[in-house]
Design a protein around this nucleic acid. Structure first.
Length: 273
DNA sequence: AAGGAGTCCAACCGCCACAAG
DNA sequence: CCTTGTGGCGGTTGGACTCCT
């Protein structure tokens, strides 16, 4: 063995099922041994110099592969499980600001990886756009996010907070339309036509593909379920360019992360708009 | 029960930026 | 400057899993 990382000299010699060897480099799923080896090494010597990690441990993986495995799977403080409502809210808001800059978005959501957020966006959010037959990067879809999805998320979060007696998250000021103000925001956005959505009911779309966004009563009242958003009213607003960086990063200390800090960060995000 | 469709996610790929020589 | 090595990032893919008919 090349530079045997102590304790593992005799273990890394069998290529497990599913692993492919190309030019003496293993590809495919990581084995428990590889994980343990990488974890122990990085814990001992720290992150960085990933090609050295591969060489010094004897792992037949590329440095890139080691880095990815560490960041997306082995790194401590990774948060597992479903994306919470608060996290969904932050993803939507931060994507409005930064676009597909997944690592930057991930840096604001402790415990989540850029890969997770990217996957979430593709499987959940892009699906919405697809069902609505509009481009996920289009102004129309961003308006939908800001006017329908985000306010609804805030509503859901507040409902759950209210039940537990916690402080409420501020109503989205990012163009969010309250039930009371709905009729006063008569400003149909250009492009929001019957044709754009091909007659698909936004409500039906949301219901079928994104259950968390169970439509609130004010939305149901305003949007005819059979015709979709055409002819309905959306608050006119300026969408902050996803290219524009606003203020310094406000990363949280991962070590100190908890539900409360995430909630506070969510509030900060609203106040910035 | 079977198999086809849809979903999710880990892992890889290609490109780019940057630093060192 | 140019080349090379490395790390980081976003996009894509393939397989496992779940759901539906």
């Amino acid at each position: 063995m090349e530079m045997g990382f102590q304790g593992y000299e005799s273990e890394l010699h069998v290529c497990e099922e599913g692993t492919v060897v190309v030019d003496d480099v293993w590809k495919g799923p990581w084995t428990d041994y590889e994980d343990a080896l990488l974890f122990d090494y990085v814990t001992l010597y720290g992150e960085g110099r990933w090609n050295s990690v591969a060489v010094n441990t004897g792992l037949k993986r590329t440095g890139k592969s080691c880095r990815l495995r560490w960041l997306n799977y082995l790194r401590p403080n990774l948060r597992r499980g479903n994306i919470t409502l608060e996290e969904q809210l932050m993803i939507l808001k931060l994507h409005c600001r930064w676009g597909n800059r997944w690592s930057k978005i991930a840096s604001q959501i402790p415990g989540r990886t850029d890969n997770e957020i990217k996957n979430y966006w593709r499987t959940r959010v892009q699906k919405q756009a697809k069902h609505l037959k509009c481009d996920v990067n289009s102004q129309q879809f961003r308006d939908m996010l800001n006017d329908v999805f985000i306010p609804r998320l805030v509503e859901k979060i507040n409902a759950s907070k209210a039940n537990s007696g916690e402080m409420l998250v501020q109503e989205a000021s990012a163009g969010g339309v309250s039930p009371e103000s709905w009729d006063t925001h008569v400003s149909p956005l250009s492009g929001l036509t019957e044709n754009t959505y091909s007659g698909i009911s936004v409500h039906d779309c949301i219901e079928s593909t994104w259950p968390e966004f169970e439509a609130p009563s004010w939305y149901m009242d305003a949007v005819p379920a059979t015709t979709g958003p055409a002819g309905t009213h959306f608050a006119e607003q300026s969408i902050i360019s996803h290219q524009s960086d606003v203020g310094p990063d406000q990363s949280l200390d991962i070590e100190a992360w908890n539900e409360e800090s995430l909630r506070l960060l969510s509030q900060q995000l609203f106040e910035e708009y």
